[in-house]
């Protein structure tokens, strides 16, 4: 996508530069009209419409996969994340675990995060795991997240939420499924 954009930019700019330098001979009206239609229809209609079509062909399936559609034959783990000025409250409703500024998930499986806020609008974002979603007071948004590899990922608040915004961070620990089950047990016992 980026390279396509760069190429388009270069082509358009060089065309302009050439057009500026060019010294056309006398043009009769009909010829000028042909040139005009060629550029406007070619560049103004065909170019953007075809690039849009291309973008959509790639874009729609990606978007489709990010939908929190029911997964066949599998219970998706539900985690509640609530934004506060300026920290994250994480709850596992089934295991009754509550955490602060950290999130543990099984790697290789989708999880659904129930996002909401206790005060102002925040936004949940782990750059390396995918898109962001706003956390709004009074509403719950569901974000489907999946970490393919176990590891530690950094997340932060992406919607401006006041003086502590820059420091409103959290970490995501993705465990291999077995480790995750063990962690759940352990965390449960600690309570």
């Amino acid at each position: 996508m980026a390279s396509f954009a760069v190429v388009t930019l270069l082509v358009v700019v060089s065309l302009w530069l050439y057009a500026v330098k060019r010294r056309p001979g006398e043009l009769d009206a009909a010829r000028a009209r042909r040139i005009q239609n060629r550029w406007i229809i070619g560049g103004g209609l065909i170019l953007p419409i075809s690039s849009m079509a291309l973008l959509l062909v790639f874009g729609i399936p990606i978007g489709y996969r990010m939908l929190p559609l029911p997964v066949a034959g599998q219970q998706v783990l539900q985690i509640e994340v609530t934004g506060h000025q300026w920290w994250w409250q994480v709850r596992y409703p089934e295991a009754d675990i509550e955490l602060r500024n950290e999130l543990h998930i099984p790697a290789g499986q989708p999880v659904d995060l129930q996002l909401t806020s206790n005060d102002v609008i925040h936004a949940f974002w782990v750059p390396r795991l995918g898109g962001k979603l706003d956390m709004l007071p009074g509403r719950t948004n569901v974000l489907r997240l999946q970490a393919d590899q176990p590891g530690t990922y950094h997340g932060q608040c992406a919607e401006f939420c006041g003086t502590g915004h820059a420091h409103m961070k959290f970490t995501v620990h993705a465990h291999a499924p077995d480790d995750f089950a063990a962690w759940l047990e352990g965390a449960d016992r600690d309570e």
Partner: peptide, 17 residues
């Protein structure tokens, strides 16, 4: 993007001719 592109290319055609 379409009306924007139309303008850009109309300008180009003006310079061209």
């Amino acid at each position: 993007a379409i009306p924007t592109a139309i303008q850009i290319f109309a300008w180009l055609a003006t310079l061209w001719t």
